[in-house]
């Protein structure tokens, strides 16, 4: 009975939303901001990927807030989960195929992650996506050899330094140009690796921070005693 009413509620809600959506435009975005950014972005930031310009230059402060939220969530999760670590019994080692496969994939994933981070201003991708790939690369060997724990001290150092670098670049721009995270350095030639000023540096900091945070979170979650199966 309760499920039936809930389904009815959901169906009614969906119908209501559909009626609202009938008035929404499709294919002709009414926003003017996007048009302005599309026209100005290449000259202002020098990045070929306009989404990167929006994320790091036009809304750079938002990205700093996003990094803080991600840090708070990862720290909270680590805090809640951390009490378990004392009486854990590590899992047994994985089989030969798992260990060899993890060893084979680790350098490949590392290269792909770094490529995605460093080309964030030219091609789709950037610090967040590449950081997730880096976290996966560092988590993979942990599946094969659960005994070799990740070095949490090194991870916190990388994370802290990367976050500090992001803020330092922003403050540098604040003092040199008068705006927090304003584009600095030369813009270079559109479409080349060394272009777009500080944007690749910012994305590298974001990538390292996200990668360190998430691999620490994954290691926290994986470090569990094997419950009775």
């Amino acid at each position: 009975m309760r499920n039936l009413t809930t389904l009815l509620f959901a169906a009614g809600l969906g119908f209501l939303l559909l009626v609202l959506a009938a008035g929404l435009p499709y294919g002709h975005p009414p926003m003017l901001v996007g048009q302005g950014i599309l026209q100005q972005a290449p000259a202002t930031t020098g990045a070929a990927n306009i989404v990167t310009s929006v994320v790091l230059a036009y809304r750079g402060l938002d990205t700093l807030g996003e990094l803080s939220i991600l840090f708070a969530a990862a720290a909270g999760a680590g805090l809640v989960l951390g009490g378990h670590r004392r009486r854990r019994r590590p899992d047994p080692d994985g089989g030969f195929i798992l260990i060899a496969g993890a060893d084979l994939m680790f350098p490949l994933l590392l290269v792909v992650g770094l490529y995605v981070i460093l080309h964030g201003h030219l091609t789709p991708g950037g610090g967040f996506q590449g950081g997730v790939i880096l976290a996966a690369a560092f988590f993979l060997p942990l599946l094969g050899r659960p005994r070799e724990a990740l070095d949490h001290t090194a991870i916190s150092w990388i994370e802290g330094l990367a976050g500090a670098a992001f803020i330092a670049i922003g403050l540098w721009a604040l003092f040199a140009r008068g705006d927090f995270l304003a584009p600095m350095l030369g813009k270079g030639v559109l479409g080349q690796l060394f272009s777009a000023g500080t944007l690749p540096l910012l994305y590298a900091a974001v990538g390292l921070k996200v990668g360190a945070e998430l691999s620490g979170l994954l290691a926290d979650l994986a470090a569990t005693e094997a419950r009775d199966p």
Binding site: P124, G126, F128, A136, L214, L221, R227
Partner: peptide
């Protein structure tokens, strides 16, 4: 939206699935 697609594939399909599965293992 290739940027969003890459993020959704890496974060939504990859990382989030791994986090959920690890939590499930920890829940027994």
């Amino acid at each position: 939206a290739p940027d969003v697609a890459l993020t959704e594939a890496a974060v939504g399909a990859g990382l989030s699935g791994v986090i959920l599965a690890l939590a499930l293992r920890r829940l027994g």
